[in-house]
């Protein structure tokens, strides 16, 4: 396989997923040997911002017209586009509160200066361009990222996690925080792939990897309410990483 042309980009976010890539310390020298990284502003000052790319890896959410235009340019020059991290896949924490009046908030924080700032509500990449592969996580898991990219470049379909954190937790026989300690653990609703990292530390899942398909929201919400949590707090918790914002909205509407 010839070395594919790769670009690694960050829109608005914390740069944590690019940091996970740089954190592959043991394999860093192998990665740069296998990939022809042509555009990676966080790590290099010699970037080709126009060349065609076999693979674009994009983190962060779209929070400005500038982000949106950059994403469209990246899509136009790339054969495969991979969204990495919960912000790129779901909108992330910035998308948790879609109802807030943005222009008012910006005015409050920056005064009159803020009126000219380029700012839009948080959107995931797929809301703007076609995305070929989503790798969720806040941040992404190193192994899932490396195997996903490796599969793509070798012409295989990446294997993505499909079961919830809850299933991984049971496999490891951790104590159930939902039933034994009555925490608001989001394990049953959240996409696995982290090997139930937080429940393994006796800490309830906060949902940082985004929602799992076919989650039984109704039943889990009923359990939370049985455990004494209020609807509003449940809705807020579910929205934190934005992945559940659609269902969380439904929850709030039920209330009214």
């Amino acid at each position: 396989m010839s070395r594919p042309n790769v670009g690694i980009f960050g829109l608005t976010g914390c740069a944590g997923d690019q940091l996970v890539i740089l954190n592959c310390e043991d394999r860093f020298l192998h990665i740069i040997a296998a990939l022809n990284i042509r555009d990676f502003a966080m790590a290099s000052s010699d970037n080709d911002s126009a060349c065609d790319l076999d693979l674009a890896i994009v983190e962060g959410a779209v929070l400005s017209r500038r982000d949106e235009e950059q994403l469209e340019r990246i899509r136009a020059r790339s054969r495969i586009l991979v969204a990495i991290g919960t912000c790129a896949v779901w909108g992330g924490i910035a998308a948790m509160d879609g109802d807030t009046d943005r222009s008012q908030l910006v005015r409050d924080i920056y005064g009159e200066c803020g009126e000219q700032f380029d700012t839009t509500p948080a959107r995931a990449l797929h809301e703007i361009v076609g995305v070929d592969l989503n790798i969720s996580g806040c941040p992404i898991e190193e192994e899932e990222f490396l195997s996903g990219i490796s599969n793509l470049l070798n012409g295989d379909l990446p294997i993505a996690p499909t079961t919830p954190v809850c299933a991984e937790c049971k496999m490891r026989e951790y104590n159930c925080l939902l039933t034994e300690r009555v925490d608001m653990c989001l394990g049953p609703l959240t996409l696995g792939g982290c090997n139930a990292r937080c429940p393994g530390l006796s800490i309830g899942c906060v949902g940082c990897r985004g929602p799992v398909d076919d989650a039984n929201l109704e039943s889990v919400t009923a359990l939370f309410m049985e455990n004494g949590f209020g609807r509003e707090d449940i809705a807020r918790k579910l929205r934190t990483f934005a992945g559940l914002r659609v269902v969380a909205h439904t929850l709030s509407e039920d209330e009214s």
């Binding site: 400005s64 924490i93 948790m96 807030t100 910006v106 380029d118």
Partner: peptide, 14 residues
Amino acid sequence: FEGLRLVEGLVRGR
């Protein structure tokens, strides 16, 4: 020119 995430609006009420 990093985009604005306005975290203040997000933690209020949490």
